[in-house]
Write a protein that binds this DNA or RNA. Structure first.
Lengths: 137, 137
DNA sequence: GGCAGTAGGTTCTTCTTGGTAACCACGACC
DNA sequence: GGTCGTGGTTACCAAGAAGAACCTACTGCC
């Protein structure tokens, strides 16, 4: 911003570590940014769970969404799926080490949220008062 | 809280800080989990930007999506929008302190992503080999 | 006069996400 | 014999997010 001989157009000050703009943020968000993944991970952080247990622990999730969510998490190596060939079949889901490291990340998110929740709610109220009926939400 | 006289069914081991399952994770993800917010925040972390600058810096974003994104970020108190009543009007976007704290969070996300990217890609390939044509993505 | 740039707004269409419901096999329970 | 519970799958559908294309109003440049 200050002195420049030939004008530095856009000097990267806080890049993401040498990568372009994106870094890998989009990848993470594509993975856990959906509606249910983090909730399932948080529940599995408490211990091994079966399908119905998960469904009951995550209120509002449908069978299909839970199926899709655990499949994706399994595919990404975040959880393991163990089938016991009993009748009726028992399927157990558990976090992998990588899935467990994800819980730390989730914790960071939660901490940030708790820290700024009030300020955000306040900012929203102020903004909504100044811009009534703008349709932004 | 601890010792229960009538059997504690599921003892929370890694709760999110006393709140239910959710904590504030969903709030954060609802805020930054969309396709563009983090990218705009990352770009603004480099300094003050104008509308067109942002649009050029975030490849692929449409005018409308950029408008919506900056409006929402402004509403949540993450960025400020300063209009200079010149002709043509100049509008400058900048991070607030809270928006800046968000960049730290984003950094954490990026670090986690960089650390586990390879392992995830590997897990995916293995899974896709074992489950061909399952339709999961 | 015509084009580019600036900061959007408006409308239309497409794509993705998530939800609902039905169905399966199998045994247990009543 | 009907229903429940288990762990799914499949088909269908509604809502919202995103994209594309057009519009404004204003000025400076050639």
């Amino acid at each position: 911003m200050s002195v420049g001989h030939t004008a530095v157009t856009t000097q990267p000050v806080v890049t993401c570590g040498g990568e372009r703009e994106d870094c890998g943020i989009r990848e993470v968000l594509d993975r856990i940014g959906d509606k249910w993944s983090v909730l399932v991970v948080v529940e599995l952080a408490q211990g091994v769970r079966r399908f119905r247990q998960l469904q009951r622990a995550v209120p509002g999730i449908s069978q299909r969404m839970l199926t899709l969510t655990v499949r994706r998490l399994e595919r990404d190596g975040m959880i393991t799926r163990t089938v016991h060939p009993t009748i009726p079949p028992q399927v157990e889901y558990a976090l992998t080490p990588m899935g467990h490291s994800l819980t730390h990340l989730v914790r960071t998110l939660a901490d940030w949220s708790a820290e700024h929740r009030d300020a955000i709610a306040l900012a929203r109220r102020d903004w909504d008062e100044l811009n009534p009926g703008s349709g932004v939400r």
